[in-house]
Design a protein around this nucleic acid. Sequence first.
RNA 1: GGGCGAUUAGCUCAGUUGGUUAGAGCACCUGCUUUACACGCAGGGGGUCGGGGGUUCGAGUCCCUCAUUGCCCACCA
Length: 1069
Amino acid sequence: MDVSKMSDASESNTIPEGSAADAFPSQYDPRQFEDRIYADWECAGVFHAEVPKDASSGRQPYCVMIPPPNVTGVLHLGHALNNSIQDALIRYRRMTGCETLWMPGTDHAGIATQNVVEKQIAKAEKKNRYQIGRTELIRRIWEWKEESGGTILTQLRKLGASCDWARTRFTMDEGLSKAVRHAFVKLYEDGLLYRGKKYLVNWCPRCRTTLSDDEVEHEEIKGKLYELHYPLADGSGQLTVATTRPETMLGDTAVAVHPDDERYKQYVGKFIELPLVGRKIPIVADSALELGFGTGCLKVTPAHDTVDYDIGQRHNLQAINILTEAGAINENAPAQYRGLDRFKAREKIIEDLKALGLVGEIKDHPQQVGHCYRCHTIVEPYLTPQWFVKMKPLSELAVKATAEGRVKFHPERWEKVYLKWFDEVRDWPVSRQVWWGHRLPVWYDLEENKAHITALEVGENEPYDADLNGKRIRYVIGEHAKPIVAIENPAKSYRYAGKHLIQESDVLDTWFSSALWPFSTLGWPDKTPELDYFYPTNTLVTSRGIIYFWVARMVMMGEKLLGKVPFRDVMIHGTVLDGDGVIMSKSLGNGVDPLDIIKRYGADAMRFTLLDMSTGGQDIKFPLQIVCPHCDESQELPRKRSVPTMNCKKCKKEFQQPVPNEKPLPEPAPLMGPLDSPRFEKGRNFANKVWNASRFVMISIDAANEGTSAAATPEKLELRAEDKWILSRLNSTIQAQTQALDAFELSKATNALYDFFWNEFCAWYIELAKPRMAANADAADRAATKAMLLHVLDRSLRLLHPFCPFISEALWVELNKRAVPAARNLGAEYKGDANRQSDELLAIAGWPKSDVARIDAALEAQFASLFDAVVAVRAVRQELIDNSPKEKKKDVSAAISGKLSVAIRTASADLAARLKEQSHILERMANTLPPEIAGQELAAPHPSSATAIKGGTIYVGLSSDLVDVEKLRLAKEIKNCEQYIPRIEGKLKNDNFVKNAPPEVVEEERARLNDANTKLISLTAALTRLQTPEPASAPVVARAEKQEVKREEKQEPKAAVIETKDKKRKTKK
RNA sequence: GGGCGAUUAGCUCAGUUGGUUAGAGCACCUGCUUUACACGCAGGGGGUCGGGGGUUCGAGUCCCUCAUUGCCCACCA
């Protein structure tokens, strides 16, 4: 790229179309653009990815699989974060010319979805799922799914998500279901799937299904620890056991003691007569007990406790299941308890035992208890045959893939967390006793399994498998039944002709199909071109919450079934929290609705803010506010919310606020005030800044076109130093941002652009460009300036697009109207596929490449010192005001608002030359008269303030009445200097420092000391002069043009000296 | 009970391999309707970097320890 040869677009390429001022209101209104622009993208098909027809094109794929949200889901801020990150990565790669696929879709979310529809039916028809029946329930769920499922995908469009919607998948689609069956059969055939009673599974009595360990959430409850006395069968005494679940005693088949426990050795081999039940149960010795814990005796219930189950295995104890699937006491218990819910039974048993005098101490006992992650019911360890996936061989594959670096985590530390799971994981129970999901591809031949399958007639509120002559039949399949595992229904094959086959009624754990997502969506098990081209995918973006559920299982399945990892990089981002660090959720009443934020701030503002806050995978906190639904006033959200309504502080009207753990008030109720966070203002303000900078560029281009027919030819374009400077900064920014995106460091990327655009392009370059764009400016220079503005804006919009796609695209359209892409010196720089990339739409335009030859560190340093001088003069102005008495501030402000007279004394010929060369920068940016610049011979104006910059002193002419006020400040600054100098001197006097520190560090310190001393001398001299009578010389402050201020012209022979602190100067180094 | 984070300005957070007088945004103070932007411009105030030790010429950064807090894992009856 050679910007110095940028062509001028003012003549032929510009489409004059009204004035820019008309098209550009001074505030960006996202609502005017977002939906329209999204529609434009969709119409143009820019999100659609295709496998390149020409395999030799070398076009790189880039593929991200969306973590499929539940089909029941609605967008929350966590989704907004997750998808903003994915979209940023996707849009960036799309612009670099990759064939970019972002695969969208939803998850059928077995239990969760079934619960939603069941609840609806229960409400509307007062029927449970068993009364509705399996077939009908599934039909209703599909119906619901078609009508109101997948809302979240629509909401993702509001966010700007550039998914390939044409490829949207659902985990229960036929294709994906086929993949599930193939995977199941393959695992079975390879001996990695089996049915049996491997261990006590977690059972949710409300959902009436098995859960995997990961689906159980441990939470502390206020339980009780009961001591129970168990009489010895021979009547010789009793043993005392302790339990938190007394009802399980109905299933006790032993009492265990530790083999080394001297207290109980004598009892081993004797029997207990189990109270209430009357069963004689042995006393066994087992080292699973912890010596010295509790009473030393443990009641053993093999069917209802995992530790007990193992003890039972070791001692050949009977495992008696005493609970029904619904969590009530079953027929294996004495009649008086049958049918009682487990917790009711607990109370009754304690009552009955108390009556027998067999209850000891009852203590409060806080304990961690497993809850169902879907319905929050306390789960039971339960003895039931299930289908298990054998984990060890699969774990090994996944661990190996990580060890070999084929899957990388960002941030890295998550790798350890991920690996730990494989160490501890038990075999995965994959069968679920719900109806919504992938039914296991398993059948049984009834005849052949006569001995193992029992046909039970069941009641109205029970699950059933067949309806025989009006009788509801449930097939209970024994542990040793022989299954037929097949991809397609074997009943169709001649081999089973005439046989009575029944299909396994269980469905698969939802996470089983999720584990296949990265390849089932691409057509696996078929060998599709998509699978070939896009798999393994590139990046998975997700939260830490599903590393075990999902990430680990995808890697296992990818490795096992395809021999390849499903993705190369896993980016784990933080969790969105409220201002108190509490996770946002609807039920807690602290959930911010992304759609509310989009309405209020715009999608770009929300995305930018989220990305800007995504630092190193840290959690993101949003202090909350609430918006009055009547007048839109954002206000503090009361900390304690118990009352459901509040009154607006502005319009005083009443509205509703969310109350933790309470549902919204029923209709008619006051309007709900949406939650809001002031954090989003950063994104909104930045978007507005971009809008207005662009507005300036467009307006000044349009204005320049009117009066200038003679356009500059490229040869005439000469770059000024500030042009070279901004190009240097631009190219540094491109480099920094690109590197940050490649490293998944989103906030670094947004920061680089934000700083460049706001603090460099807007704050300095545009201001310097203004006089150059004026109608009376040099035409050639104006053309060069225009080309520069277009160039920098062009690149900036490209850099912005991954974060803020809407506003950047909206402005791109305007840019294209005024200067076709060719005029912005694009094209040759980008070698994208002509069919896939175009400058018509920014979404598929090229990503800027950093031209390192343009990066000029020396020039940047020069400008930093120039800007220092500007800031020093600006500071003089404000400090004069600050140090004046309150009632005089306005007068002083008016008096110094005009151009100041300035003189600069510097010993550095280099600095002098630069200042002279670039004096227009000082004049423009600090609003001064042309400065006088000289060496020691410079006669400083009198009276004047003196301010030290690196390498010199700036004198600003003052009127004498401001002198006194400045003495104070000078003294302050001198003091500051005097405190600083000894610190450096101390360092340099330390021999160890001089000896051990690297020479360049020592040199730096010496230079610092030198600077500080020079500064001190010049300030002290100024103060001395200020206190010494001296003939008045030149004036003074240019009089304010707009306001006449009368001041006494006493002309006291004194000078004011003003100092600023270097550290506070806001210039880029 | 283990593991991993966090603790830096009133708030939300940056701070690369230890090396300027520790930064940003918001809030605050002061001045400015300087025609791209008051969702703005300019200038400023504000931090003994959770406490205590240690290593080092030098520590926000490395080590130990304590405290507070969050998350994950864990069968203590």
